[in-house]
Each structure stands twice: as structure tokens, then as C-alpha cells.
């Protein structure tokens, strides 16, 4: 290209050859550095937690079965807790997700604007209520009030194993825990869903309406498919909170350690988090290791749930509308 082919050394006074490094402003460098630092920090913290769980849990996995609380080994100890954790969280999710989607749709597409806005703030406020308050409400109000309903369920739907009974006299059952957790995770799922529904492109809503869709059909055609990944993310956030919820479950649930789908009796499996909270103060030695091992299992469950959600969202990425 250039005609400058002069051989030999450059003249003595020539300026230094231009640096091959791109010009970077100090502000850019600081920002890039701090962002990278924050990214690394989160990984270090996560690795630290995982390492702590693994190291502290290890003795419980290698200890003889008789030393583990209960005397039947680590699997027999943790399994009912895993079952209880999943059962409570799934009940909560099954109740909360459809309700949250409906509330979010009401706020974004049906309510008049002067109602929608305060309602949105109210939902956000609900998310800020500490879980212990929900727990107190569950045990003091919901549990006694639900005994009658649970008796009805046993009388008329008792043939379904879920409602086999006998009904707990105090109402401190798995069903009440599930409902309390549902109320607790409702705001977060609603808030996330509402945000995505609001972002549905007007263009797609109008496309559906112009084809002669009713409002509900428009929502089915344009809003829900667009918001699908958002609903899943919201549900997973809620599930994460339900899985890890400690105080509300510890206060409400009457525990026997039985593995049962019977939701309305007084014999229930505990959950991992509640069990740790209740047992930890009186535990020593291998008992502590066992509790931490159950914590490790909870950690893995949460990890698996999040990966599954990510997988579901990615599977239809092509159709997400992001391109």
C-alpha cells in the first residue's frame, strides 16, 4: 500500500513508534476493573460456601450409620427432610404461580390505571414483609381457621390420599405451610411477571387484536408467550425462597418425620431449613455435620432447580422474540 519503503534506521529525532495498545480512558479501566472484581468476588463467595458445606458435611457421609441421629444412617435422616422441603415448596408454587400470573395480568391489562398503580406498589410492599411475620400469621390465624376447611376436605375428598386425614386439631399441617409459603412468594412472582407483561411489544398486541382477537385471546397469543420466560424466572425465584424458608415453617409445622403425601394430618415431614434451625442449637459433633450435610443437599436442590429453569427458557430461545 504505502510507498514508504526507505530502508535503514529511522532518523534519530523520529517520534516513538505508535503503541499497538488501544487507547483506554482511566474511567473505562476503573469501571472494567471493578466490574470484573465484583464478578470474581461472587464466584469466590460461592466457591467458599460450597467448600465449607463439602468439608463440614464429609464426616457425616463417612460416619457409621448408628452415629447419625435417628440411628439409621445419613440417607434415612435426610430423605424425609428432602421430601418435606419439596412437598411444601411445590404446594406453594402450584398455588402461587397461577394466582400471581392472574394478578399481574389484571394489573397490566385489565385494571384502570388509577387502580393498577397503587395495587402494584401494594404487591411490592408485600414482598418486603419479613417471613417471621408470615409465620406468626400462619400459626395464629390461618392454622386455626383452616381446621374446618380441612375437615370438609377429609369428609368429601378423603378418597384422595392428599386429604386422607385424620385432621390435625391445631391445623399446623403441611397444607397450611404450603398456603403460607404461597402467600409469601406471591409478591415476587407477581412483580417479575408484571414487569415482563408490561414489556410486551404493543406491535404484537395490536397484531392479535387486528386479527379479531378478544382481550383474553390477545393475552394468550401475544402476552403470555412473550412473558413465558419471565413467568418461569419469577416462579424459580419464588421456589428458591420457598425451598429455603426457615422460620415460617419452623413455627407452623407439627413434625413427626413421616414421609407422607397426607397434607392435613398432624404427622408431617419437616423441611431441611426448618430442621436445621430447630436442631442446630442443641447439636454437637457428628450431629452438626449431619445438619450441614442436609444443608448441602438443599444447596444442590436449589442449583438443580435453577439449571432446570434455565434449560426450559433456553429450549425455545429461537422463538423468544429476542432476535
Amino acid at each position: 500500500m504505502s510507498t514508504d519503503t526507505s530502508p535503514g534506521p529511522a532518523p534519530a529525532k523520529a517520534p516513538a513508534p505508535p503503541s499497538t495498545r488501544p487507547v483506554v480512558q482511566p474511567g473505562d479501566r476503573i469501571f472494567a476493573g471493578s466490574a470484573t472484581g465484583a464478578g470474581i468476588l461472587i464466584l469466590v463467595v460461592l466457591a467458599g460456601v460450597a467448600a465449607f458445606l463439602l468439608i463440614e458435611a464429609a464426616p457425616a457421609f463417612v460416619a457409621p450409620a448408628a452415629d447419625i441421629p435417628g440411628g439409621n444412617g445419613i440417607v434415612a435422616y435426610i430423605w424425609p427432610l428432602v421430601f418435606g422441603t419439596l412437598l411444601a415448596a411445590v404446594i406453594a408454587l402450584l398455588i402461587a404461580t397461577p394466582l400471581a400470573v392472574c394478578v399481574a395480568l389484571f394489573i397490566t391489562h385489565f385494571a384502570p390505571r388509577r387502580i393498577a398503580q397503587p395495587l402494584g406498589y401494594l404487591i411490592d410492599l408485600l414482598a418486603a414483609v419479613p417471613s417471621i411475620v408470615y409465620g406468626l400469621w400462619g400459626v395464629a390465624v390461618l392454622a386455626p381457621a383452616s381446621v374446618e376447611l380441612m375437615t370438609w376436605l377429609q369428609d368429601y375428598l378423603g378418597w384422595i390420599p392428599l386429604f386422607a386425614g385424620p385432621v390435625s386439631a391445631t391445623g399446623r399441617t403441611m397444607l397450611v405451610v404450603g398456603v403460607t409459603l404461597a402467600v409469601m412468594i406471591l409478591p415476587i412472582i407477581t412483580a417479575v411477571s408484571r414487569e415482563v407483561f408490561l414489556q410486551t411489544p404493543k406491535l404484537h398486541e395490536e397484531a392479535a387484536l387486528a386479527l379479531g382477537a378478544t382481550r383474553w385471546e390477545m393475552i394468550k397469543m401475544a402476552v403470555l408467550p412473550f412473558g413465558r420466560s419471565g413467568i418461569i424466572s419469577g416462579a424459580m425465584l419464588g421456589l428458591g425462597r420457598a425451598l429455603g424458608e426457615t422460620m415460617a415453617v419452623a413455627i407452623i409445622l407439627s413434625v413427626s418425620g413421616a414421609v407422607t403425601f397426607n397434607l392435613i394430618s398432624s404427622g408431617n415431614p419437616s423441611t431441611i431449613a426448618a430442621n436445621i434451625a430447630l436442631q442446630f442449637p442443641e447439636s454437637t459433633g457428628i450431629e452438626v455435620n449431619t445438619l450441614i450435610a442436609s444443608g448441602l443437599v438443599l444447596f444442590l436442590i436449589t442449583l438443580a432447580v435453577n439449571s432446570l429453569a434455565r434449560f426450559i427458557i433456553n429450549r425455545r430461545r429461537e422463538f423468544s422474540g429476542a432476535n
Binding site: 411489544p201 406491535l203 404484537h204 395490536e206 397484531a207 392479535a208 387486528a210 386479527l211 397469543m221 401475544a222 408467550p225 412473550f226 413465558r228 425455545r316 422463538f319 423468544s320 422474540g321 429476542a322 432476535n323
Partner: peptide, 13 residues
């Protein structure tokens, strides 16, 4: 029927 200014096929379909 109506056709809009910007093409708007349903992205999820």
C-alpha cells in the same frame, strides 16, 4: 384485516 407499519409476526410462533 390490517397490515402495520412495522412487520409484526408473532415471535413465539
Amino acid at each position: 384485516g390490517m397490515v402495520f407499519q412495522r412487520p409484526n409476526p408473532f415471535p413465539t410462533m
